Every structure is written in C-alpha cells, then in structure tokens.
Computed example of a mutant assay.
Amino acid sequence: MKRWLHRLLGMGTASVPKAEMTEAPQMQPGPKGFPATRIRDDALSASTLHAAVDIDHLYFAWMLGMEASVSEPNDMERRLLRALERISSTDTQAVTALVPRMPAVIPMLLHSLRDKDVSNARLSEQVARDPVLLAALLKQVNSSYYRRNEAITNIEQALALLGQNNLRLLVASVAFKPLFNMQSGHFIAPAAPRLSALSTATAIACRALATRRQVGPFEAFLATLLQNVGLIVALRIMDQVYEGGELQSLSFCSSLAIEARRLSLRVGREWQFPPAVLQALAEQDSAAAADSPVAQLLRLADRLGKLHVLVLNGQLAAEEAEEFAAVEGGADGIACYRQLTPREEEA
C-alpha cells in the first residue's frame, strides 16, 4: 500500500511516519493497480489515507488514460497548461466558441419554469418542440423509480407526475448531454464518455444530498453540470495545441482541475447562470466553512460521483470508496454514496 501511495503521490521512497500506521485485518487485494486499503502491519487509517490521496488525482489520471508517476510536469504538460491559463484568464470568446449552443427551447423552458404560475399546458407545448427532451421526459416518468403499472404517453400527464422541480433538472440534463458526445480529438475522444459517466453519477449524488441538506436542488444541479463543461472546454483546448508526448504528472492533474473550473465560470457568466451557481463554482478551491451551502454540496457530490465511477471501472476498491465517502461527508456522504448504484438509471 505504501509503495502504491508513494508512486501515486510522486514521493519516491519516502516513508510513512510510524505514528500514522495502524493495525488492521488482512484484506484481499483490490482491482488491478489499486490494493485494498487495510493490510496487516502496513496499513493506513481511513483518515490518513484520505489526507494522503487526492481523489482528483485518481479520477483525472484514469479519465486521461495516463500513468501518473511523477510530481513535476514535463515540457508538453507545461505547454498545455500555459494554453489553458491564457484562454481561461483572458479570452471569453475563445472559450464560448468551444461550447455548442443550447437548443432554443431550453432557455425558453428554463425561463418559463421561473414563473411559479406557469401552466402545464404551456410547458407541454414547449417540451413538444424538442423531440430529444420529450423522449427523455417519457423515459424518466416510465422508469422503475415511479413503479407504474401502465406506461405514460401523454405529455401533460408526464409533467403532472414529474413536477416542475424535477422538470428543471431534466431540462438542464438534456441541455448539457450533447457536450459529452465528442467523438474526435486526442484527449477528448477517450475522456468524454468518462466525463459523461461522472456527470450522471454526480447529478444523482446532488439530488440525494439536496434532499438531505434541504438545499434547492436546481442550482446545485446546474453547478455540477457547469463544472464538467469546463473540463470539456479544457480538453478541446488541449487538443488544439497538442503536438505529441505523454501526460505523466500529478501536478498536471491538479492544475487541470483548477483551469477547468475557471473555464466553467467563464461559460456560466456568458450563459447568464444564476449568481448562486457561479458563487458555488468560485468557492470550490477554498473548502472553507464559510462557503455557501450550494458550494459545499457541489464539492461533496463531485467527490462521491468520482468515487462511484472509479469503483465501477475497476480503479478503486469498493471498501476504499466507502471509507473516502464517510470521511468526506460523514453520514450524508456514506448514505448518498450508497444510493448511486441502484438509482443510476434515473439520471
């Protein structure tokens, strides 16, 4: 376990302090490349493991298909980061040009949903204008979650069952989904489906956390989607300037996460997202107790989503993921993490 941690963290042969060692029962090895957390006479407690291992490092290394084995970026990685920093800090037009436009019906629907008195008849008329949105609506209301004996085929009946709050979430999800269907590009082609899986898992975690913490789910849900849009833009920028070479550093993973959030903020401002959403994104790097409830929910939902995707793809042992979830979010973290797998079809 120590050797794996040192490789992951770029620590060479540094030793783990004896004070951090703890006795624990023998466990079977985890998935390939990721040993189980507890090993007799050479184990780390859950809190120590959590402090040592950055979930972003695990997720980004897998998303990019890289063997993160060193701490410092190479020349190619520095070149990519310079391009990301330049565009994220100065060039709003270049950023928004890399994001497909939303279908016209989406902002129209979201505007209508701000009106508490809007009728289902009006919403039905708008939903019917977008076949993709209509199909998604009918699929959701006919899923096993609602346990209906007969299929719903009428839009107004579907809207009555779903409710306006859930319709907001569905509209936002459908609006963002095409962004994760990129098919070409050295970085984006393999990463986009992995980002799509993360977006789905994070959306489910967001809904579960919003219920437990009594936070408005729509703004938190928008924030989770917008954060991943920044990663899509970052990957497209990287594809534009890529001239060959291999990613290999943990430092690059950390910097990519920061630049992606900056890109998300630029897109969010251009799309005139609610201030609470932009504030939540801006607070992601602080992890302060004074952060807004939406920011805290977004941070935890993102971590739970990454844990879930890593476990599903054999990159992390399930026992390790549950320990991370508990340390990250306490009772909320472990309860919401356990909801991800059985409810994945609802996203």
Rank of each mutant, 00 (worst) to 15 (best):
21 M>R: 08
21 M>S: 10
22 T>H: 15
24 A>S: 14
24 A>N: 06
24 A>R: 10
25 P>K: 10
25 P>L: 15
26 Q>I: 11
27 M>S: 12
31 P>L: 11
31 P>E: 13
32 K>I: 10
32 K>V: 12
32 K>L: 14
33 G>Q: 12
34 F>Y: 13
34 F>I: 06
35 P>W: 11
35 P>V: 09
36 A>L: 07
38 R>I: 13
38 R>D: 01
39 I>R: 08
40 R>Q: 15
40 R>M: 09
41 D>N: 15
42 D>C: 10
43 A>D: 07
43 A>F: 12
44 L>D: 03
44 L>Q: 01
45 S>L: 08
45 S>N: 04
46 A>L: 02
46 A>I: 05
47 S>F: 13
47 S>H: 13
49 L>V: 11
52 A>V: 04
52 A>Q: 14
53 V>E: 10
53 V>K: 06
55 I>C: 07
60 F>H: 00
61 A>Q: 06
62 W>V: 08
64 L>Y: 01
65 G>H: 00
65 G>S: 09
65 G>D: 07
66 M>E: 02
66 M>W: 01
66 M>G: 05
68 A>V: 13
70 V>I: 14
70 V>Q: 07
71 S>I: 12
73 P>E: 09
73 P>H: 05
74 N>F: 01
76 M>W: 03
77 E>G: 01
82 R>L: 14
82 R>H: 11
83 A>M: 12
83 A>E: 06
84 L>I: 12
84 L>Q: 01
84 L>H: 05
85 E>G: 12
86 R>V: 07
87 I>N: 08
88 S>I: 09
89 S>R: 07
89 S>K: 03
89 S>L: 15
90 T>L: 14
90 T>A: 15
90 T>P: 02
92 T>C: 11
93 Q>C: 08
93 Q>F: 11
93 Q>R: 15
94 A>N: 11
94 A>H: 09
95 V>P: 00
95 V>Y: 03
95 V>D: 04
96 T>I: 15
97 A>R: 15
98 L>P: 00
98 L>D: 00
98 L>S: 03
98 L>A: 06
99 V>H: 01
100 P>Q: 04
100 P>V: 06
101 R>Q: 05
101 R>K: 04
101 R>M: 02
102 M>Y: 06
103 P>H: 04
105 V>C: 08
105 V>Q: 05
105 V>N: 03
105 V>I: 05
106 I>C: 02
108 M>L: 00
108 M>N: 01
